[in-house]
Design a protein around this nucleic acid. Structure first.
Length: 83
DNA sequence: TAGTTGACCGGAA
DNA sequence: ATTCCGGCCAACT
């Protein structure tokens, strides 16, 4: 059992290729469905190449933000077939 | 320690 | 459909 931050990173790192999860879904899997905001904060600060944070999008179906730029995120999702 | 901020979400106008 | 407001959680100052 780890902290919420660790759990979130773990969940995100377990996202299969070509699959996109919403921040709320990640928060729910992490144990706090209402921590969707915290998830964004944690991921944004946790700059790690092992964490495919580009597979995490908003519930509205929008891309949201990304530490490398939304353009990179969109390209990655398109490359993986998530689009 | 307390206050503010942020890669969000859902509902209301 | 778009815009505004409140709420929840973690991190930063």
């Amino acid at each position: 059992m780890q902290t919420f931050k660790e759990k979130v990173l773990q969940v995100v790192s377990k996202i299969p290729k070509g699959t996109t999860l919403t921040y709320k879904q990640v928060a729910e899997k992490a144990g706090s469905p209402k921590a969707c905001r915290a998830v964004g904060s944690i991921i944004s600060k946790n700059y790690d190449p092992k964490i495919p944070c580009h597979r995490v999008i908003r519930s509205d179906g929008k891309i949201g933000n990304y530490n490398r730029g939304q353009d990179k995120k969109i390209k990655l999702l398109k490359s993986e077939g998530a689009i």
